[in-house]
Simulated assay, not measured.
Amino acid sequence: MKWKIKIKDIIAKKNVKIEDYYESEYIELHTGTYKVIDKRFKVKISIVFTDDTIVVGGYVSGKVERPCDRCLEMTVMPLEGTIEAVYDLKNEPNFKNSEIENLKNVIYYKGEEIDLEERILEALVVSAPDVFVCKEDCKGLCPFCGENLNENPDHVCKEMEVFNIDPRFEKLLKLKEEMQNKN
């Protein structure tokens, strides 16, 4: 698999740069599974070996097709994630006297190869927003009938009128309807 790198190769070269595409038709994020535009993400990774430690850094970018959380229209959502990891090849984790926040993204590792796909997916998942809107001023859907308010901003439905009528203004609403019927 092209995203698995042998540790002995990294140690021998000391510095490895990878620029390629991570290919996937769909990606699972914390908000759902989405179709990947062009079926790929652009990836740039730099891997450096020093002092029994492998430092991985880079970025991943691409686009997925995702429905807007307000109007439910399918929209293109860009994703840009940062890849960061430190693999400690020498030490063993000591959890007795340390707390989780003190680990500082260090991966204690005893293997023959590193799977960069895990770091790529991690960067994409972390970069995905919890709430996504197609545009900043998206009006969403009518809460009564489901009409897309972006397509019909002046939308008024009977359910909305009945629900929103303040009893003090009922006579004014009737007067408005009478005036509209005359025109």
Score class of each variant (00 low, 15 high):
residue 171 K to G: 02
residue 72 L to Y: 09
residue 62 G to Q: 05
residue 158 K to P: 07
residue 20 D to N: 11
residue 134 C to W: 08
residue 129 P to L: 09
residue 25 E to N: 03
residue 90 K to S: 10
residue 182 K to H: 06
residue 46 S to V: 13
residue 120 I to S: 04
residue 2 K to R: 10
residue 14 K to I: 14
residue 64 V to M: 02
residue 151 E to N: 11
residue 175 L to I: 13
residue 46 S to P: 05
residue 10 I to K: 00
residue 106 V to Q: 03
residue 151 E to Q: 06
residue 179 M to D: 03
residue 182 K to V: 13
residue 43 V to P: 04
residue 5 I to D: 00
residue 139 K to I: 09
residue 18 I to G: 04
residue 49 F to H: 09
residue 114 I to T: 11
residue 82 T to E: 15
residue 11 I to A: 04
residue 114 I to Q: 12
residue 159 E to K: 14
residue 53 T to H: 05
residue 168 R to K: 14
residue 3 W to R: 00
residue 111 G to Y: 12
residue 53 T to M: 10
residue 147 E to K: 12
residue 40 R to I: 02
residue 32 G to W: 14
residue 24 S to C: 09
residue 12 A to R: 08
residue 174 K to M: 14
residue 58 G to Y: 01
residue 106 V to R: 12
residue 151 E to I: 09
residue 143 P to L: 15
residue 54 I to K: 00
residue 160 M to A: 02
residue 10 I to Q: 00
residue 35 K to Y: 11
residue 148 N to A: 08
residue 15 N to A: 11
residue 67 P to V: 06
residue 147 E to T: 14
residue 143 P to S: 07
residue 99 E to I: 10
residue 25 E to M: 03
residue 74 M to D: 11
residue 160 M to K: 08
residue 111 G to W: 08
residue 72 L to M: 08
residue 62 G to A: 10
residue 170 E to C: 04
residue 70 R to I: 01
residue 55 V to P: 00
residue 4 K to Q: 11
residue 181 N to I: 15
residue 28 E to P: 00
residue 87 Y to K: 04
residue 132 F to G: 03
residue 112 E to A: 07
residue 25 E to R: 01
residue 93 P to W: 02
residue 68 C to H: 03
residue 26 Y to S: 00
residue 65 E to N: 09
residue 46 S to Q: 11
residue 37 I to D: 05
residue 12 A to N: 07
residue 8 K to S: 15
residue 63 K to M: 14
residue 39 K to R: 03
residue 106 V to A: 04
residue 102 N to F: 13
residue 52 D to M: 13
residue 175 L to T: 06
residue 83 I to F: 08
residue 27 I to M: 09
residue 8 K to F: 13
residue 143 P to E: 13
residue 41 F to I: 08
residue 133 V to E: 06
residue 54 I to E: 02
residue 107 I to N: 07
residue 39 K to N: 13
residue 153 P to F: 12
residue 132 F to I: 13
residue 27 I to P: 00
residue 105 N to P: 01
residue 103 L to W: 05
residue 11 I to F: 00
residue 153 P to D: 09
residue 22 Y to S: 10
residue 1 M to E: 09
residue 60 V to I: 05
residue 174 K to R: 07
residue 36 V to N: 01
residue 32 G to I: 14
residue 30 H to C: 03
residue 149 L to H: 02
residue 140 G to D: 06
residue 166 D to A: 07
residue 53 T to N: 12
residue 82 T to W: 05
residue 16 V to F: 04
residue 76 V to T: 08
residue 48 V to E: 07
residue 14 K to H: 13
residue 70 R to N: 09
residue 119 R to A: 14
residue 137 D to M: 09
residue 94 N to G: 02
residue 139 K to N: 11
residue 48 V to M: 02
residue 97 N to W: 13
residue 42 K to V: 03
residue 160 M to G: 01
residue 102 N to I: 05
residue 146 G to V: 14
residue 163 F to T: 04
residue 58 G to E: 07
residue 165 I to M: 15
residue 28 E to C: 01
residue 103 L to T: 06
residue 28 E to G: 01
residue 155 H to L: 14
residue 74 M to T: 10
residue 114 I to H: 11
residue 152 N to C: 07
residue 63 K to T: 10
residue 90 K to E: 12
residue 45 I to P: 02
residue 57 G to M: 08
residue 125 V to T: 04
residue 176 K to R: 09
residue 91 N to S: 15
residue 67 P to M: 06
residue 17 K to V: 15
residue 175 L to A: 10
residue 20 D to H: 06
residue 80 E to I: 11
residue 137 D to Y: 10
residue 17 K to H: 12
residue 40 R to D: 03
residue 78 P to S: 07
residue 96 K to L: 15
